[in-house]
């Protein structure tokens, strides 16, 4: 579904993403792990068009979308939930959600379905998003991305700043979304264990390069690798 081929991104003289090749099939979760500065966020920002790659390709269902504008990539079915969640605090919860589905017009996901997934959001529908807690913001951000019925979902550190109970909840939700909606999920995380617990595939990134790509169970068991690249 979503394929990265030799994707490379430079910030001036600094190589943030270095020849990354990945494949995220339909209905699966690929966890991208790495320490701070490993290039995880840059990788996602390159895929969704916020940053231009130096070389390489991003393909979605065979279509080369590498140099498309961000909004066109989104409209092609790739939703990006940015780090720090990116809820628009000046708008209400409901307005944030509606915004996510506007470009889809009538084919947008009914807001009801998002409320069924995240009942907390319905209780707070008419409040400004600035009043939400961290966990609620994460739910809003994911729910908003779903409004446009994407086929691929890019999640940037959804566990950031959340209590362990919430992290587990969010992770199992991501797993369920991949299973029920057939989403191709590219999940970037520092919280390796919780990400690997739901992933089909684990990728370790260091200095922008893929240093390991394995089954999640094998990665979790490989203490030496995790210690070397993730610091525990």
């Amino acid at each position: 579904m979503l394929t990265l081929e030799e994707l490379t991104t430079d910030y001036g003289p600094i190589r943030a993403v270095d020849r990354v090749t990945l494949e995220v099939p339909e209905g699966t979760v690929t966890a991208v792990l790495g320490a701070n500065g490993a290039g995880k966020t840059s990788l996602l920002r390159t895929v969704c068009g916020l940053v231009r790659p130096t070389s390489g390709h991003v393909r979605m269902e065979g279509e080369d979308i590498t140099r498309w504008a961000v909004e066109e990539i989104v409209r092609f079915g790739i939703a990006h939930v940015p780090e720090g969640r990116g809820v628009i605090t000046e708008l209400t919860v409901q307005e944030n959600l509606r915004l996510g589905g506007l470009w889809r017009g009538r084919d947008a996901m009914p807001i009801r379905e998002v409320y069924e997934l995240f009942p907390r959001l319905e209780e707070r529908a008419s409040q400004p998003a600035s009043r939400l807690s961290g966990g609620e913001r994460q739910m809003l951000s994911i729910g908003r991305a779903l409004m446009g019925r994407p086929r691929a979902l890019l999640l940037d550190e959804p566990s950031l700043g959340l209590a362990p109970v919430l992290v587990a909840q969010i992770m199992s939700m991501v797993r369920r979304l991949a299973d029920t909606l057939g989403l191709a999920v590219l999940l970037v995380e520092q919280n390796a264990r919780s990400a690997l617990s739901i992933a089909n595939r684990g990728v370790v990134l260091s200095l922008g390069r893929v240093v390991a790509e394995r089954d999640p169970q094998q990665l979790v068991a490989d203490d030496r690798l995790l210690h070397a690249y993730l610091g525990f």
Partner: peptide, 24 residues
């Protein structure tokens, strides 16, 4: 209106708006 919602989103948070398919 939805045009107004898109305009407000583009004004408050241009990058997030683009990530939601708004032609900023």
């Amino acid at each position: 209106t939805s045009l107004g919602l898109r305009m407000r989103a583009a004004a408050f948070a241009p990058e997030v708006a683009r990530l939601l398919g708004v032609r900023v």
